[in-house]
Design a protein around this nucleic acid. Structure first.
Length: 219
DNA sequence: GACCAGGCACATC
DNA sequence: GATGTGCATGGT
């Protein structure tokens, strides 16, 4: 299959999802900082649980870099308990705060002036930030044209035979980024639409009969 | 009560 | 380099 064919298929799927679901208005977070916190908390976790955790942080007036840096790890873990894996996630948030303050004095504005490639390397070097979390931050917190691959992306597109279910993250990502225009707005919607579709139809027990992609001619 | 969710790091072979 | 395992709450 040639790149041109992937491009056509990916655009076709995008159109179908967009006309079915409409604009998703992602990320569900008010500030850049909240997006980053959410990106870490949602690792392998239902968003409804993340909302509770972020709600707790907000109620404690801690949804800012300075406040989150100050709070003891143990207290943070207690606040984010509803998001699951709370010990390890508290550690990951703290790792990010250490990076943010040691390199940028806690200023996300300063971070936002960095080139995407450098920023990506830096974020990936933080223990607890892997490829998906990193790219979610780049796209949704900093508006960079990066395609986010997640479990739903792999599940949906492997079922339609574009790549294998256990394809390497960057292989899958490259397929989208080598074929689609690098427009942050479109990448933003595309990933959000994939998640919308995934949540409704492509959990471990798929409901392919009513899927909006039903009848799509796969690769 | 089993199964699953918008991953990641680390151990072991 | 590939494969397995721990991390954990809350909804279905």
């Amino acid at each position: 299959m040639a790149l041109q064919d992937y491009r056509k298929a990916f655009l076709d799927i995008y159109e179908r999802l967009y006309s079915y679901y409409g604009p998703q208005g992602w990320w569900p977070g008010r500030t850049r900082f909240e997006v980053i916190v959410g990106a870490i908390l949602t690792q392998n976790t239902a968003w409804t649980n993340v909302e509770k955790a972020i709600g707790n942080i907000g109620k404690a007036r801690l949804l800012s870099p300075a406040a989150l840096k100050k709070i003891p790890y143990k207290d943070l873990a207690r606040l984010i308990r509803p998001a699951g894996y709370y010990n390890i996630k508290a550690k990951r948030l703290k790792n990010f705060m250490r990076y943010l303050f040691s390199r940028y004095g806690g200023s996300l504005d300063r971070v936002s002036r960095r080139p995407t490639g450098d920023l990506r390397k830096e974020l990936l070097s933080v223990n607890g930030i892997g490829p998906e979390t990193c790219d979610s931050i780049l796209l949704y917190a900093f508006g960079r044209p990066v395609f986010v691959v997640d479990a739903y992306t792999k599940r949906i597109f492997s079922r339609h035979r574009f790549f294998s279910e256990n394809a390497d993250y960057h292989v899958a990502q490259a397929l989208f980024m080598d074929t689609l225009a690098h427009e942050p707005g479109m990448f933003n919607e595309y990933h959000a639409l994939i998640v919308a579709l995934g949540k409704e139809y492509c959990r471990k027990r798929p409901r392919c009969d009513d899927c909006p992609l039903k009848g799509f001619k796969s690769a």
